[in-house]
Amino acid sequence: MGKIAEIEGIIFKIKRFSVHDGPGIRTSVFLKGCPLNCIWCHSPEGISSDIVIWHDQSLCIACGECVNACPEKALELANEPQPHVRINRKSCIRNGDCVKICPTGALQFAGSKTSVTDVVDEIIKDILYYETSGGGVTLTGGEPLNQPYFSKEILKECKKRNIHTAIESCLFTEKETILAIMDFVDLFIVDIKIFDGQQHIRYTGKSNRIIKDNLQFLAETGKSLIVRVPVIPGITDTVENKNDCEKFVHNLNKHIPIEYLNYNPLTENNYKRLDIPFLIN
């Protein structure tokens, strides 16, 4: 097992009893880093590969322990509208003294370096539930293919244990990356967001040419596929976009299911916790 332990990746969450990311009861592993930058992203902490500090105002009791602990004096206690902690992101060197001292868990690293072994240990805790429900593991993010070796090793270890594997991806990656992991993936869950190329660039920062090519490639391999379209009011939920997406997928293979994902109204809180602006309202 020594070899696996050497491979590390960055994850920002492991969610057990995940019931909307593939069949059955699943464990979803959220990997950090994403090539796209969708303005509606519901996990903004997963976009960057950097491990930043996350501050959950609702847990903070404004005790001030972190202010005293920070060697860079990057934190301060503000009193308006009610007492709370403010982070100066520019001076923060993320040494974590504040996280260590914070008594409530309001301050945390939004992500951590984790070994494959540790991830797999967490996954296998729910093997019983995967077996009874036809569930398994789903790698999601961020973008799991952004950390291809790490993802591949996790998937490989899961397949050794006969665990059903799914990967949720935007497919903005090299074809070789897909080829390299394909044998260890039972189900691809692919987001196609916006069909129109220009609009795609506008809202995600990248062209969708590669995505469409990769999706076509995957469909031709006969791999199990689910396509997901996030429903973002005023952006992706137009009749035109839905029709285009459906037509495209249908032409690839009429048996590929399409799921529409409702927009999560709690998303904005995640932006507040990172002190980054949220552009959707």
Partner: peptide
């Protein structure tokens, strides 16, 4: 989802 709940009951029986 209800089916997943049923699976949870099936798992419970194994514990």
């Amino acid at each position: 989802d209800r089916e997943k709940f049923t699976s949870l009951l099936k798992s419970f029986v194994c514990l």
